Every structure is written in structure tokens, then in C-alpha cells.
Amino acid sequence: MTARQEALWAVLLWPCLLSTSFLLECTDQDQVIHPYCLSISQDKLLDRVMQHVELIFRVSEESCSLFEDIFVPFPLRLQRNQEAYACFTKAIPIPNSIGEVQQMSDKWLLHSVLMLVQSWIEPLVYLQTTLDHYDGAPEMLLNKTKWMSDKLISLEHGVVVLIKKMLNEGLLTTSFSDQGLFRYDMQTDMVESVMRDYILLSCFKKDSHKMAVFLKLLKCRHTDNANCA
């Protein structure tokens, strides 16, 4: 890993890994309220995180389709794949090709999921705010966005617990400050605002699918490693 990648990893991960000091040792009864506890078995923790991510992905698909149908004219949809609308998480050093992903270690897979989760917390909070200013934004879309934002914070905790459980990693100390990857300009016209939010939803859908793929590969390695290709 290059020095630049190490620096970026440290910037992205330290707020999450600091929360390991608040990890819970739960009884069976407590697990109803706190689904991610150190006392839960590793396999069950991984299954819960996987289910959590898959559910977030499904809701992100629904939200993106709903937003597209209501606010995005067809000509604007065709612009989505232009370089100018690249996902901000493209800057995160995570492989995209299948071959490269299969070569990732368990540690890389888990920390890549954590980086993606943390990188989307602020944008989803922002998205809730900007959607409130849309005329005719359906309550269903607002509720789905709020749900994803809340669940992402819970997922962050779940991934941190899973890292602690599977990798036995605790606090990560760093001298780097978090500069953030997500930038937005509130002074934009309506078309630009719609495209910005459309790209955010589209990119979140892609990244939540990527998280699901990483976790499925991780699960496969720990159950049927010979057939994970």
C-alpha cells in the first residue's frame, strides 16, 4: 500500500475505530435492542451485517428509481455516466475489477466496507436536507432517505464490531485530520441540484451493492472457499 493510500485509510477509519471503546457485551435479551454485540458469534455477526447491507441496497434501488421517475427527465438520465458526474467515492483506493477484488485480503474487504459506510454518512444527511426543498417530493422518498441514513449509522457500528471480532483490531491512532471526500455547493440552479442529488442516489446504490459483494466474498471464504470465484 502506498503512503497516500495509508494516509487516506487513516483519515477515513479513525473516527469509526475509536468507537470500539464503546462496543457492547450483550446478553441474549439485549441483542433485541443492540443487534451488534461482541458476545454474538462471528458467523452470526457477519450474517447480520450482510443482511443489513442487502436491505440498504434494496431500499437504495427503490429510492433511486423513485427519484428518477419523478424528477429526472430522460435526457438528464443519459448524462449520468459522464465523467463530470463521477462518484465522489471514486477517490477511495478500493479495487473495482473482479480479479482485483478476489485478491483482496479479509482485512481489505472489511476495511473497504467500513470506508464506504463512513464516506456516505454525511452525504445521506445532506440529501435529507436538500430533498425537503423539492416541490412535490413524496413522503415515501423522504422516509426512505431518512431510513437509509439511520441504518447506515447502525451499519457502521456493526462493521466495527465485526472487524473487532474477526481481525481482533481495536483503536487506530493517527495524526491525520479528516478532510472529507464529499463536497457540495448549495448555490446551484434547479437542474444542477437535481443532477447532483440523482448522482448521489445512483452512486450510493452502486456502493451499497459493492459492499454487499465484498461481504458475500468474505462469507464465502469462511464457508466454501474452493468455490468463491
Rank of each mutant, 00 (worst) to 15 (best):
R80L: 13
D135A: 13
K164L: 07
D135H: 12
D224A: 11
E6L: 07
S193K: 12
L200D: 03
P138T: 02
T188W: 05
Q118K: 14
H209R: 14
W9K: 15
T27C: 03
V101N: 11
Y184L: 01
Q29K: 13
L162N: 04
D178T: 08
L17I: 07
T2H: 01
M190Q: 14
L38Y: 01
V191F: 06
L24C: 14
S21R: 15
P73G: 03
S149L: 04
R77E: 03
T174H: 04
M140F: 11
V11Y: 12
G170I: 07
L46K: 05
K164W: 10
M50Q: 12
L142V: 09
Q118Y: 15
T130H: 09
Y36L: 00
L109F: 06
D150I: 11
E122Y: 14
L46H: 00
A10Y: 07
K210M: 10
C203M: 02
C37F: 02
C64G: 06
A91E: 09
K210A: 08
Q118M: 13
I98F: 13
W108Q: 15
I163L: 03
L17N: 05
L13S: 04
A7E: 15
A10G: 10
L114F: 02
V117G: 04
L76D: 08
L218M: 04
S119T: 06
P93F: 02
Q187S: 15
M166C: 08
E122N: 13
V72W: 00
S97Y: 03
S21H: 13
K206S: 13
V194N: 08
R196H: 13
L172G: 04
S19M: 09
D197S: 07
R58F: 10
